Computed example of a mutant assay.
Amino acid sequence: MTASTHDTRPVALVTGATRGIGLAIAQRLGDTHHILVGGRDAQAVQAVVDELPSAAGFVCDLTDEAAVSAATQTIERLDLLIHSAGIARSTTVEQATREQWREIFEVNVVAVADLTRRLLPQLRANQGQVITINSGSGFHSGPGGALYSGSKFALRAFTDALREEERGAVRVSSIHPGRVDTDMQVELQQQAGRPYVASEHLRPGSVAEAVALAVFASPEAMVEQVSVRPVFKA
């Protein structure tokens, strides 16, 4: 899962890279990085690998601790870790079950923290970078948003703590998109009972450009936090 010794490209692991924002990020960085394409579906992962100039698969269920342990042991070198995998749920506090709380925090927070922890030695060795794809919901919440916003608030706290703990060793950035035209957003709008109009949302490529801003900042600079929102006023 690593680039060959003859490949001088920096190595980037992008989770959730088979669709939506993660796919756009993998495509944006594909010309400059060797991409480890993260995903659970081996066929979908391979399809992305095949379209990139330099890539390999990272097929793993990030909620499976044993699987993550085995998969990360194959990564000898890493320059960039981008956490794009995540889930969204919309329900009221009254209706939310303990299982739903556990599920969303396991995927959006615990899996991120565990994967980061396991790969910190490789990142430190290369003065690497961690980027978390958060959300506007990482700053505010509203009716039906306790599950998703709660997990994104926690992700922001994790990212802020990691940034200070690793300052000078690993650059850490948090990207906060508003509503993005993805399958996840379609589901969220359906759950909220609102009509879906794609043109009112950000393109995944716009989020990828915000990620690129952080990735390609000069070595002495750290883009700590970026908020990207649609022009359309909801």
Rank of each mutant, 00 (worst) to 15 (best):
A3H: 15
A3Y: 13
H6K: 15
D7N: 01
D7T: 02
R9L: 04
R9W: 05
A12V: 04
T15C: 13
G20R: 02
I21V: 02
A26C: 06
R28C: 04
I35Q: 09
I35M: 01
V37C: 02
R40F: 08
Q46S: 06
D50L: 12
L62D: 05
A70P: 13
Q73M: 13
E76N: 12
R77K: 10
L80W: 01
L81V: 05
H83K: 10
Q95I: 12
A96H: 06
A96N: 12
E99L: 08
R102L: 11
E103H: 10
I104K: 06
A111Q: 02
L119V: 11
P121K: 01
R124G: 14
N126F: 06
N126H: 10
Q127P: 01
Q129M: 12
I131H: 14
I133E: 07
F139W: 10
Y148D: 15
L155S: 09
F158H: 08
T159G: 08
R163Q: 10
E164R: 08
A169I: 12
V170P: 00
R171P: 02
R171L: 00
H176C: 07
P177C: 01
M184Y: 11
E187C: 12
G193S: 03
S199E: 15
H201N: 09
A221E: 03
E224D: 11
Q225A: 13
V228A: 11
P230A: 11
F232S: 12
F232L: 10
A234W: 14
